[in-house]
């Protein structure tokens, strides 16, 4: 059969595949998951960018029917699209935890997720434990972290501290993590990171009916409305179990609360494409929200049993 080349970029690797012309998103996605040995597939997706807007490959649509650049290799980023409510309970396989760790670490270092200075240092110390193993002063000599990107630039700029002083601060914590295996250190990292306000939130710029610019956040727990100046604390939240219906028509998006006494919330997003993405993220997040509130599927039960062994 006729094929074309796709390049898949994960958080720590790049792979190329020959993709058949007739393949649907799911065929390619499954191949990538099989190649990675990843079974907790429901958190992930294949991301591409179209006109500066993020988009995700649809499972039931042909790969080539997507609005992707047809120049080969066609490139997709294999990334977490949905986040667990509780990493320790939900992320079972080591590979799943590792991919989340890398993705969240990048978001924090790139300042996509705000992290206060003290927490940044603690997170850095777990990242160092994950990479270097137990602290050994005879091996980890002064300057051993000089080439590592460990802290957000904002945090570094906040203090009059030399790189040596930062290394000392991080190493003091690092030495405390003795005995933690890589996967444990990465899980400790995620347990701290998941409590950061911006963790796992997809932000979209919207305008309310008065034309005021606001932010919409979509996450594991529901929809949130923010002042653009404050991405940390929502002005209004709509938890999934308090929403009756969500819909869009062109650029307009409507959230209908369950409680009829609460006003319907309507806003406009910049593009129809953005509304489609918002709805997709809502459906996926709500689906996981519901699944968490049912018993584990047989597959997850088996994986948890395996992980315990």
């Amino acid at each position: 059969p006729k094929t074309f080349t796709v390049r898949i970029v994960t958080m720590d690797a790049e792979m190329e595949f020959n993709c058949e012309m007739k393949w649907k998103g799911k065929d390619l996605f499954d191949l990538v998951c099989r190649t990675l040995g990843l079974r907790e597939t429901w958190f992930f997706g294949l991301q591409y960018t179209i006109k500066d807007t993020v988009a995700w490959l649809k499972m039931d649509k042909k790969v080539l029917d997507h609005d992707v650049s047809k120049e080969e290799p066609v490139t997709f980023h294999f990334l977490a699209k949905f986040y667990p409510e509780n990493a320790e309970e939900e992320l079972v396989q080591e590979i799943t935890q590792h991919l989340f760790f890398l993705q969240v670490k990048k978001q924090i270092l790139d300042e996509k997720v705000y992290c206060p200075p003290e927490a940044s240092v603690l997170l850095a110390s777990y990242a160092v434990q994950a990479k270097y193993g137990d602290y050994d002063p005879s091996v980890h000599k002064r300057g051993f972290l000089a080439q590592e990107e460990l802290l957000p630039k904002r945090v570094i700029n906040l203090y009059q501290m030399t790189p040596e002083m930062w290394e000392e601060r991080i190493t003091a914590w690092y030495a405390e993590h003795r005995g933690r295996a890589r996967d444990e250190a990465e899980m400790e990292y995620l347990k701290i990171a998941q409590d950061l306000e911006m963790y796992g939130v997809n932000y979209f710029t919207i305008r309310n009916k008065k034309g005021t610019e606001l932010l919409l956040g979509v996450d594991a727990l529901g929809l949130h409305i923010y002042d653009p100046e404050n991405r940390l604390t929502p002005k209004i939240s709509f938890p999934w179990n308090e929403i009756r219906n969500i819909s869009y028509s062109d650029k307009e998006f409507t959230i209908k609360p369950l409680d009829k006494k609460i006003d319907v919330f309507k806003f406009n997003s910049s593009k129809l494409r953005v509304n489609k993405l918002i709805l997709q993220l809502c459906i996926g997040n709500h689906d996981l929200f519901m699944r968490r509130r049912k018993a584990d599927s047989l597959e997850v039960q088996q994986m948890k049993a395996q992980a315990r062994e």
Partner: peptide
């Protein structure tokens, strides 16, 4: 082809469809 310009998701309905 026509782009679909509307979409809807019944959050409550999905919850009710959920097997106990």
């Amino acid at each position: 082809w026509h782009r679909r310009r509307t979409g809807t998701y019944g959050v409550l309905a999905a919850w009710r469809r959920l097997p106990r």
